[in-house]
């Protein structure tokens, strides 16, 4: 169609941006400005660059991203809510020669699935977890998540999250970093070009430590949910910078390849 003609390269032209083949060529069901699309693309790029697409098994979780298997062309299994790290443990123990990863949101991982992720991390399961933190339950319509910021209004804390009533937002990258079996734990953000580039490096590292058999790889990606934040995508990215990053500092919280030794 029209787009195809425009994509034809002249002799002196080249693509400045490669789209990974493992990323399925179809429109996603995600809302405008939702960062799942970026996170999916980063995972796809990393799997291709590592050359492990054909040996990868994805464990999908419950939430908006349950349909990740519609967008990544890898073998996949669907886990019950919060249980993806346990399912991934089973897959990996069954096939220790494969690359196994889960992709989970903050309701799934940091609330109902807290026991599963912490123990998989503590056992040092050779799996990778991509954790998308957008401070809200997206698929069910914007309820309060364990990561919801103080004062943030959601459909189940309409007056804003209150420390005395609902507790403080939970910081997963730091908690995971404190567990014995973890080889890598980092937090990155998908709000800017610079942060997306850093996020990709973190995703790569979280997969590298699995491939090298060093331990559990964990990467938290701060993401926007414009729909449930009741704002447009541009304002949502501003919110990540001004409200989320100050509470959820970006950085590497544990990296055994940087002199901490193998766990």
């Amino acid at each position: 169609m029209q787009a195809d003609e425009r994509l034809a390269l002249a002799d002196d032209e080249q693509m400045a941006f490669e789209v990974p083949d493992v990323l399925v060529d179809r429109a996603t069901h995600y809302c405008p400005g939702c960062h799942h699309g970026i996170a999916h693309r980063l995972v796809a790029e990393v799997l291709e660059e590592m050359g492990v697409v054909d040996d990868t098994i994805c464990v999908a979780s419950i939430g908006c991203s349950v349909f990740i298997y519609n967008y990544l062309a890898v073998d996949s299994v669907e886990a019950p809510h919060g249980r993806a790290p346990a399912v991934a443990t089973g897959v990996k123990r069954g096939r220790t020669d494969k690359i196994v990863f889960t992709y989970q949101g903050d309701g799934d991982l940091a609330s109902i699935g807290l026991a599963e992720v912490m123990h998989a991390a503590n056992r040092g399961e050779r799996i990778t977890i991509v954790f998308v933190n957008n401070t809200v339950y997206g698929m069910t319509g914007g309820q309060m998540a364990p990561t919801t910021l103080i004062g943030q209004k959601t459909t189940t804390c309409p007056g804003g999250r209150c420390r005395d009533r609902e507790g403080m937002p939970i910081r997963m990258a730091e908690i995971i970093a404190g567990l014995g079996g973890v080889a890598y734990s980092a937090r990155a953000s998908l709000d800017s070009v610079k942060n997306i580039r850093a996020a990709k490096k973190a995703v790569r590292k979280a997969f590298d430590v699995q491939q090298q058999g060093l331990g559990f790889g964990f990467v938290e990606l701060l993401s926007g949910c414009p729909t449930n934040w009741r704002m447009d995508a541009v304002k949502a990215n501003t919110r990540i910078r001004e409200e989320m990053i100050p509470y959820f500092p970006l950085g590497v919280y544990k990296d055994v390849t940087e002199g901490e030794g193998v766990c």
């Binding site: 098994i57 464990v59 299994v77 886990a79 019950p80 249980r83 346990a86 399912v87 991934a88 443990t89 089973g90 897959v91 990996k92 123990r93 069954g94 096939r95 220790t96 494969k98 026991a115 599963e116 912490m118 123990h119 056992r123």
Partner: peptide
């Protein structure tokens, strides 16, 4: 084979699900 003492029966059964997905007798 592989033996895992899970953190709960909830996790045990989900590990079983995962191994089953890999076609393993578990």
């Amino acid at each position: 084979g592989e033996f895992v003492q899970a953190e709960s029966e909830v996790a045990s059964a989900n590990m079983l699900l995962g191994a089953a997905a890999a076609g393993i007798r578990a």
